[in-house]
Design a binder for these strands. Structure first.
Lengths: 229, 229
DNA sequence: AGAGCCTGCCTTACAACGTAAGGGTGGTCA
DNA sequence: TGACCACCCTTACGTTGTAAGGCAGGCTCT
């Protein structure tokens, strides 16, 4: 409508799949994944919603692509790391690097767990991880088990189910509720989580993530030694 | 509309929060969680969508309630188990029992990981789990770490990120893709997953779940012994 | 007993969403 | 020059969650 298309020359650079996906990522980073709608992405690009369909098949494909962009970012970060030395150190470093990227795109971990199962970038990530395990002396079979055991932790996030540090510091609970939860109440009042800096997941701070990760890596190493003398 | 309200007397029993939630669970079980809409639940109950709002605050609350129903089912199953004996056996048994329930409501694990963080039933489940750990000689601190380390596995499901057995049996890949994934291709062709009975998550069959679980339980026991001589 | 209210269900309506269908415009190539 | 095609737009539809309010029957209080 009366848009002479000369006032904003930088907005008029053509749409592309890349630009669409990057915009979706940016919106999700800034305002949350639930605010990413076709119209919103179009707006941000100075285009209409329907124009996006020339570059992505539909909204699902857009989300898949956005996640893939994040995983690509992970792969780029991870490719620079030293893959030599002790396998446990190498794997640990790699996973924590992936985690650092996911901390910049917190919406991505949820999407990662539901879609993009066969995303090329995700598969590539796991391929390199298997490479590290193999180099560390893992049989293919044990490496396969390792992938399953690590699960989503392999890419740097874990799925927490409830947050003992948040939403209930033991004495904030109604007495009749507290009476029903003797063990948790006792645990919480002893622990007194004084550092509720949540990261990925609810109370899943870096320390807890690494604790679980090391538990798995130690266990895997023990299995490795047991099978390959 | 000309409904004499006498033809179907059993449909006219009044709505209730319980009935609404149970209906949502039933629809999700049978047709998938994405088919659960307010109108659909209403239909199933012989009522209008808006009538549900007298029993649940909104759709989010409905989904939360549906998940809670499933977790209640878990708790009922788990409460019957023997809590004595070796802690590792007790915890393992309990988690596998929870898993068995979740296998009957596959949609629930995804919802569990996003909502219902502070659901009373979920909290109760973890309280009992902490009780088991305490009885097994865990400090509160180690029990807390254990909850984090187990993550969603504590309730019987794990989050898989990709499925090496599905969607690519190594030789079904285009050659240029396969060349990019040397480790996975080698792994898959050696393993030849002949039992692709998927359960919860993608290729996360029972064996893999138990492998990861035991890895964690073994590691936790080692930490326990190390801290309490 | 009658007035008033509360509870439970319904009707109507709307905004936001994804997207199907098709129109127009500019650049490219024969 | 004319045909084609890539690209973007307009319009419109069905589905969703839900706000607003209506209407009946049973309860309580006088």
């Amino acid at each position: 409508m009366g848009d002479v298309a000369s006032s904003r020359s930088e907005q008029r650079l053509p749409l592309s799949r890349e630009r669409v996906l990057r915009t979706a990522v940016a919106i999700a980073d800034e305002h949350g994944i639930e605010t990413v709608t076709m119209r919103r992405v179009g707006d941000e690009l100075g285009a209409e919603a329907m124009s996006l369909y020339h570059h992505v098949a539909n909204k699902d494909a857009l989300l898949d692509g956005a996640v893939d962009l994040v995983v690509r970012e992970i792969n780029e970060a991870v490719d620079e790391l030293d893959a030599g030395g002790d396998w446990q150190v190498a794997v640990r470093t790699r996973i924590l690097a992936a985690r650092a990227v996911l901390l910049r795109h917190r919406w991505a971990s949820r999407l990662l767990s539901t879609r993009a199962a066969t995303s090329p970038e995700v598969v590539r990530y796991h391929d390199r991880l298997v490479g590290l395990l193999r180099a560390g002396g893992f049989s293919f079979d044990l490496a396969h088990h390792a992938l399953h055991a690590l699960g989503s932790r392999a890419m740097g996030f874990s799925q927490e189910l409830f947050d003992p540090g948040d939403g209930g510091s033991a004495d904030s609970l109604p007495p009749e509720v507290a009476a029903e939860l003797p063990n948790l109440v006792a645990m919480l009042s002893e622990i007194a989580h004084d550092d509720p800096a949540s990261t990925l997941g609810w109370c899943d701070d870096q320390t807890e993530f690494e604790f679980g990760l090391d538990l798995l890596l130690d266990g895997l190493d023990r299995r490795r030694v047991a099978t390959t003398p």
